[in-house]
Nucleic acid binder design. Structure first.
Lengths: 141, 141
DNA sequence: CGGGATCCGTATTGATACTG
DNA sequence: CAGTATCAATACGGATCCCG
């Protein structure tokens, strides 16, 4: 998630002009583009909160996401909106009320993300144990 | 889900010294822990390359991953190893040969990641188009 | 060949403060 | 309430040199 905005960035990066390796993985790999978004700290959380047709206001989202700053929440929502994954509906009332929901496209992402979440809940405990042990072992030796 | 919006007026400090939480999503959320790893730039690529029992040497991995630096490759592999997702086998030959493969645990992650990859390949094109259009629209107006 | 150690730029995130 | 604008910290990723 270091690659900034997808727009032809001026990354001090050697141009990948050749494809002589002919491999499945490349710089323009869509998976990486997705992971740059999904890897963002709050994206998945928002998508999962808006799943199942849930429509939440800015403040409601914020309350459900402990630790998020309003700047990051705004930023991530904007990103999701620009990607066509989330929809933003503004009610021009006295204090403006902004509702967020998933688009049809965004909804299709819920499945894969839920599976990932399920995997995490099942295995992250084990991983954390293994990790601690491994590091301790290296430190020991 | 619970549409309860309690007036939790206490704007607590960001100090997360204790496990003071009350929501489903929190810092100790396993999903976030997983995404911190998966969101890393090269993790998914490595896991997918090592899928299906593939065992690859350091150099082989590197050759298949255009743009990766040896530092990041080493770092990511070490992380995967510590997490118990990858296995490292050293052959103490004249020039040392190090082979990497997935553990049983690591293998179970392949499925969810493949699904994510499939989604990406199907939809990232559309997303990129939408994103460009959205940004242009905002800039236009 | 594999990888440790170091220096370094910058993207990402966060903490305020201010606006309509 | 929802959002923008600044400023500051840091973690991420890359380049390079060196070692067994």
């Amino acid at each position: 998630m270091s690659t900034k905005e997808g727009t032809s960035g001026t990354l001090g990066h050697p141009e990948v002009t050749t494809e002589r390796h002919g491999d499945l993985f490349d710089a323009n790999c869509p998976t990486r583009l997705l992971l740059d978004r999904v890897g963002s700290k709050w994206t998945v959380m928002i998508v999962l909160l808006l799943a199942d047709g849930e429509e939440l206001r800015f403040g409601a989202l914020r309350r459900r996401m402990p630790g998020v700053s309003q700047k990051m929440l705004t930023h991530t929502l904007r990103q999701l909106e620009d990607d066509g994954l989330a929809h933003r509906r503004v009610e021009p009332t006295s204090p403006p009320a902004v509702h967020y929901s998933l688009t049809a496209l965004g909804d299709t992402l819920v499945g894969p993300l839920r599976e990932l979440k399920r995997w995490a809940e099942l295995n992250m405990g084990a991983i954390d144990t293994l990790r601690t042990a491994a590091i301790k072992a290296r430190h020991d030796q």
